[in-house]
Design a protein around this nucleic acid. Structure first.
Lengths: 248, 248
DNA sequence: CGATCCCTCCCCAGTTCTGGGGATAACGCA
DNA sequence: TGCGTTATCCCCAGAACTGGGGAGGGATCG
């Protein structure tokens, strides 16, 4: 049984880790200390740039990893799918109650079992605008989870993922400084992000359609982009608008 | 100083709570036990929107809540914005290092302080396809956080939010079940998010422009949207694409 | 006072999207 | 074998966007 003090120590180490290798060692250590055999700290795919900035620390059995990649299971993996429906960790044995499993899912789970993966616990990690991720810990086939310590396992998973995320993010070049939009421009951009046309935005704001067109023209200029889609995404990225503004 | 056992007890109670009131009482109790005075367990949505059934358990000072709603600060609240950039809890004093604060943000924070809200700690909660949420705990002005116990506070926040989410799930309309796009569709959407035209995307993918148009047509259909801007933002929100795919 | 910024409105030409309607071929699944 | 899904290509008409140009009024600031 792991203690809170050990978790806090791991937290400190993880937070200070500046390379994947440092973090990997820390995760290996705490995985064993928690009584687990395997871990997988991953972003759920990055189809466009595989490997580049995506988080990926795994010590699963080799034959399972191979099967996973060969079968392109990352998008369909039921554990990953289940992790997209919750904010806290869950035991793999509870997955059937979280999502509906199709025959293919059962096949995936069976393959995992035959590769030596037993019961596991997965902590989801989502940030709007980032590929979904998760941190999983697993036993060998036949061993049982210690339900008592699962809250601590969840903490470890959260800290581990955030540490990996920070390391991955550090490798990304900073984007150009965010220009300041005027209030009116922000209102227009927020409505653009909702898929409104210039005419609709004009009605909503109570001004002429040409005025809206002009505000968006100016806003595009400030960001140095030529498409309203890019405008919306840049504004979203630097916080000029938020998902909260857009989706209801 | 709260103990792990107390957190686990709260976890059990929260998990079993079936009404907002039961949960509210549990949260009130643990808030005090952790040495906090205030809590806010909320979905980040338009609070004034009538008929909204989102999570909302708050005991912040009355005058702050009023100012918050009157000024429609929920969308711009820097604490909420900061919570959209991380997977783990953070102290409010660290917000300036997480996002860039504009004059309006400083005004919001000043208003909060003058309403009696001191230092606080916020645990983000995001599920793909659902509105963002968070669980915050705050002290009175002048009191200090106990850094030692923040990991436990984070656990409490996570469990509390998930419990509230479960209670509200029956009544919350998800933004829409996140549809699964095909690989090709995702590639097209990612390039759309970069501001590329159909013709440019066609060149990049080495297919005809009509094919790209068709993929985007299909993708829009799956999300039930009519504009490519909305398509890009929805795909971004539920993790089909990410900012790192888009911005260099 | 002039300079600068913001909001408002207008015109125009060309490009790009969007929503209809088609079609063919490959693949896996039942 | 047939059925569904995916990827590829095609046509068209109308709506929407984009990048030029210009102009007036109000506010602020030095």
């Amino acid at each position: 049984m792991i203690t809170l003090a050990e978790v806090q120590a791991f937290c400190t180490v993880a937070r200070a880790a500046s390379t994947p290798y440092t973090l990997l060692q820390a995760v290996e250590g705490i995985t064993a200390a928690m009584g687990f055999r395997y871990f997988a700290l991953v972003h759920h795919i990055d189809l466009l740039n595989p490997g580049s900035t995506a988080v990926r620390l795994v010590n699963y059995p080799r034959n399972w990893v191979d099967a996973f990649e060969e079968g392109r299971l990352y998008a369909a993996d039921p554990i990953h799918r289940a992790s997209h429906t919750t904010t806290i960790g869950f035991a793999w044995s509870k997955v059937a109650a979280m999502i509906s499993l199709n025959p293919r899912d059962h096949a995936v789970l069976a393959t995992a079992r035959s590769a030596g993966l037993g019961e596991g616990f997965t902590i989801p990690a989502h940030v709007p605008g980032e590929v979904n991720g998760s941190c999983s810990f697993a036993m060998r086939t036949g061993e049982e989870l210690n339900a008592e310590q699962l809250p601590l396992v969840q903490l470890v998973g959260s800290f581990a993922f955030e540490a990996a995320r920070k390391i991955a993010r550090a490798t990304i070049a900073p984007i150009a400084a965010a220009p300041q939009l005027t209030e009116r421009q922000i209102e227009c951009v927020a409505l653009v992000a909702q898929g409104k046309t210039d005419w609709e935005i004009a009605k909503i704001l109570g001004v002429g359609a040409e005025t809206v067109t002009q505000h968006l023209k100016d806003a595009r200029d400030r960001y140095g982009v030529t498409k309203r889609t890019m405008l919306a995404i840049r504004a979203l990225f630097d916080g000029a608008i938020s998902f909260t503004d857009i989706l209801r």
